[in-house]
Amino acid sequence: MSGAERIAAAFSDRHGRAALMPYLMGGFPDIKTSLGIGNAYVDGGADLIELGVPLSDPLADGPVIQSAGSAALAAGATLDLVLGVARELSSCLPIILMCYSNAILARGTDRFVDELADAGVSGLIVPDLPLEEAPATSTSCAAAGVAFVGLAAPTSTDQRLAAIGAATQGFLYTVAVAGTTGERGDDSDYGEVIGRVRSHTSAPVALGFGISTPEQASAAAGAGADGVIIGSRLVREAAEADQPSAACKALVEQFAQALR
């Protein structure tokens, strides 16, 4: 089964419920614990996992994910170690790797994508690789059976949304608000961005950035999202809790409950 097929199955087996996709910072606070947290996501009811590769200068990330990334690097995280986490978790759930473009270039695009496929990764999201810069990476992904997942933003023009929506594989990662990752208290009007994006793609629409409470997750699902991505809230839990795995499992259960 290709990555795109595996992702499609994860979205379609849901009887109308939105899929839950928690974000895991690979190697935070250390590699072993991050694997434990990933397993806790599985046990807590996640449907897919977004696995982040830490980078020194993550332009699309707010303070929580930035500092988790720096801590992961300080604790010795490398791409190979994070792919080791992917390998373990991919036997349970589809893994979508979130990685900045410089890490891909550093390894060499074809080799990078082959190693992803080898680790069982189903999809790749690159937050600093817009459509115009994506051809080499998406071609490699297509050859290796890894879904190259596009990103849509509230600022995207209709013309761009049409091109992004047609090119995306697996699902369309829809950024809920203009901004970086980070918890947001306001109850944004998710309906508008989801509605705009949906009219431009046949892929499932997953909403992320700023969704930090079970109520917001349920509002996103209610507004029509096929999937909900929870990032900074869970990473903060991993940073603050005495027992990160147990605490993250409990939190993922709450989000899963909210989507039932």
Partner: peptide, 26 residues
């Protein structure tokens, strides 16, 4: 997408490696 008229690339260098949110602003 519309044809760029200012230089986007200098040999292989340059480009627009930014989040989608910024592409319309660029």
């Amino acid at each position: 997408m519309s044809e760029p008229k200012l230089d986007h690339r200098f040999g292989p260098y340059g480009g627009q490696y930014v989040p989608e949110t910024l592409m319309p602003a660029l």
